[in-house]
Design a protein around this nucleic acid. Sequence first.
DNA 1: GATGAATGAGACTTCATTCAT
DNA 2: TATGAATGAAGTCTCATTCAT
Lengths: 214, 214, 214, 214
Amino acid sequence: MGKNPTKRMAILNSAEHIFAERGFHEATISEIAAGANVSDATIYEYFPSKEALLFAIPAEYSLKFQMGNRHILKYIKGQKNKLRAIIYRLLELYEDNPEYANVTAMILKTSRKFTETAEYEVIRESARMMREIIEEGIANGEFRPNLNPVIVRSMMVGTIDNLVVRKAILGKPENLMEQAESIIDVLFNGVLQPPAEEGINIHLTLDQPKKDES
Amino acid sequence: MGKNPTKRMAILNSAEHIFAERGFHEATISEIAAGANVSDATIYEYFPSKEALLFAIPAEYSLKFQMGNRHILKYIKGQKNKLRAIIYRLLELYEDNPEYANVTAMILKTSRKFTETAEYEVIRESARMMREIIEEGIANGEFRPNLNPVIVRSMMVGTIDNLVVRKAILGKPENLMEQAESIIDVLFNGVLQPPAEEGINIHLTLDQPKKDES
Amino acid sequence: MGKNPTKRMAILNSAEHIFAERGFHEATISEIAAGANVSDATIYEYFPSKEALLFAIPAEYSLKFQMGNRHILKYIKGQKNKLRAIIYRLLELYEDNPEYANVTAMILKTSRKFTETAEYEVIRESARMMREIIEEGIANGEFRPNLNPVIVRSMMVGTIDNLVVRKAILGKPENLMEQAESIIDVLFNGVLQPPAEEGINIHLTLDQPKKDES
Amino acid sequence: MGKNPTKRMAILNSAEHIFAERGFHEATISEIAAGANVSDATIYEYFPSKEALLFAIPAEYSLKFQMGNRHILKYIKGQKNKLRAIIYRLLELYEDNPEYANVTAMILKTSRKFTETAEYEVIRESARMMREIIEEGIANGEFRPNLNPVIVRSMMVGTIDNLVVRKAILGKPENLMEQAESIIDVLFNGVLQPPAEEGINIHLTLDQPKKDES
DNA sequence: GATGAATGAGACTTCATTCAT
DNA sequence: TATGAATGAAGTCTCATTCAT
């Protein structure tokens, strides 16, 4: 059983690269092996199957992401600010690791099997965390009541995934982080122009005799 | 080249079903052929390749969807209401055709090649139309200025796709249409609680005798 | 699904040839395919796996053999003669089909899996038939009582298999049929020299006066 | 080259066990190594190849068997009794070492290559010895003339091998030694009921006066 | 137009074996 | 001596696709 962590990483990186570029089925073990400068057989010393190799890719990213979240969110006050932080972190993760972004958004997120995987657990926890932040925001009055927290999360995640896929396929937006404020703006404030500032109604009543009270 | 439109539809329907259930690569021509009660070879009388068969699936749906949009939007006043209508129509389309929904959200949307296809054109037009509606809403003051129309559209589309995939993989939400108002609510109004109507209370007391203390 | 019986036979014959020559694992599908003038893939149109192909080899032989037995034995009187006929038929089968003989004696007979196969049923029936003939021979007094029928059958079958394997490996005996009488002789009469023919004791007493009766 | 005889035996025993249970090709070096509590590579310190490991298994058994034969047969008078002793010893060997029995009967005996091996020499000698005993039995009148010694030996060996294989595959006969007398009985006496002692009765009556009627 | 039959191409995976440590 | 790690070599099987009928 292969134990060399450097080689393991080389394989994982190569796999990430090839899978991102060509998709799971189009990618071949030979390509991945070549990219990692190992033989085909060596890959099977480190991963039991091509699919297991795919599913192993997110482990480190998602763990680091989620641990970073736990660490950082402690220092952030307000659910609004926490949500903003998460959006930034997610965009940053995908911007810094575009190949991982593609693997995640284009392969793993549409894989039924991945959901049943141990590796998926961390991702599930991330999702849970987002939902709780939203729920707490509703509870403490930062967010509007009657929001559906799952839908709100789907908007966050779905929007970002959509941008990742668009970037992978169409090449734009080139820069993910630059979209952060736009996303946050819509998510927080919505698209509608609020009704014109209604101003203060002041009713002055002066005690002068009125002729008619009609 | 096969010309029997009934048989063509049978193949297309079977393909939609199988692709939705098992994914593109896991699906086999034999399965699809069996589902359509034709032979493998017959499929090649109607479609030049497995991939072409996949890409042919959305044609009718997207055309009907887009023509419906054009027709209906004429009668709807206000960009806000148009956007609302599109969200409803999209959710309805996916709810009524869950297999098409899966094929679209899980296979086609992540396919680079599909983008280069003639069949993609209609979808591109749909996207353009959405963007224009948003732009017009900004222009006419219904929507807030400084919105990024592409981001707004990504939010709409990404949210809905995310829900479709979640439904396919996790089984929930069971009902897509029921999510419409939640989505629209967040998209239009955002998640933030608007600052409490601060309206300044001014108490004017005039020290002049009053006739009535009613 | 391949249906051409000629091609099926060609594959079967080639498989028999290659398996007999090189053994199951050493034989490759490619070799077998080449021997049958078909492509590798075609083999899988006719047989679901390499193993299934192996197990399909005896079907025809064993069926023909067993049906021949049923037919012929009706006309043979005496269990002794029936046993003799079976031994001849078995040796003839293996002599006429030396490759089948090898496949049977060297591969199938030592395969646990083959025993669980439908194809094995006919062979099981042959074995049952032999046992019954022996049992009847014991019952009707042709054979010695207290014989163990299963052991007797094992001697018949084991001896012949042993010769088949010797021939395959050492090249001798070159001719199987020629061993028939030797086998039958030992099986029927055993190896022991019967105690010297005791002959008839005739005591002649002549009434002549004897001098001495010592 | 490994020199630790304990470890060598551990490997040999594990190999015997695994080969017997799963066959030569189905067994893997890794399994065998695990069974011997050594690494895969260590096996190659003691045996040059998987095949050589297989062929090394019978060495000790066959040597001990054959030396035992030489020793014991000296004290046995009569070829008939010698044959009987060999049958007993063979059955005992296989009964006491069922895994070796399987390896021998199911793998080695059908291996062309094994015949060309140095390890095979002892086995060849055993066979020669059996043949000689039979030949001498024929010569000295214990056995019937006109017997084919090779066939007789094939009957002995073939029968026993057949039982070993049956036991391995079908589980019966459970006990090999118990079959000894049945085998010997048929081998020595054959299956046929000898013709009823026909002895011709001749009654001679001489019409001459007898002195005594005792 | 429909298809039964055939196959080229290739991928994943396994495993005996080697070798530096 | 022992082995962890690496790999060359190969084989089975699948499947989209073709084509003669």
